[in-house]
């Protein structure tokens, strides 16, 4: 089963981190990525540019309206994601719990829909 781990962060708070702490967080995430690559669970993942670069697109009556800023305005923003393939849902939450951002903000674990299925 594939899961997407959504990484939430408060960019304003992140900016206040000491450089040493920021480096520690990045290194920690890097280590987990390496470990998941080794175990064959890592499918992919990326970090996202600062939310201030976000554009939200809505089409109403066929007319696109593009606004600056994220769809949901909140202190915590989506800043990255990982996709992993795990044998159990518990394993996916275990990985999320080790991700450093989970200590400061939150990680969201969501199963990815599968393209196959059983007829009933």
């Amino acid at each position: 089963m594939k899961y997407i781990l959504l990484i939430y962060q408060n960019p304003a708070a992140w900016e206040t981190f000491a450089e040493e702490e920021r480096n520690r967080v990045m290194a920690e995430a890097g280590e987990i990525m390496e470990e998941l690559t080794q175990s064959g669970e890592w499918i992919g993942g990326e970090g996202l540019a600062d939310p201030s670069n976000t554009k939200t697109v809505r089409v109403r009556d066929g007319v696109p309206a593009v606004t600056d800023g994220p769809f949901v305005e909140s202190k915590e923003q989506l800043v990255g994601y990982c996709i992993v393939q795990c044998d159990t849902p518990d394993r996916a939450t275990e990985i999320a719990a080790r991700w450093p951002d989970a200590r400061y903000w939150a990680m969201e674990v969501r199963p990815i829909m599968e393209p196959g299925g059983e007829e009933m």
Binding site: M1, P111, I112, M113, E114, P115, G116, G117, E118, E119, M120
Partner: peptide, 8 residues
């Protein structure tokens, strides 16, 4: 968590 099953 299956798309075709959800559709059905």
């Amino acid at each position: 968590t299956s798309l075709p099953e959800r559709r059905y």
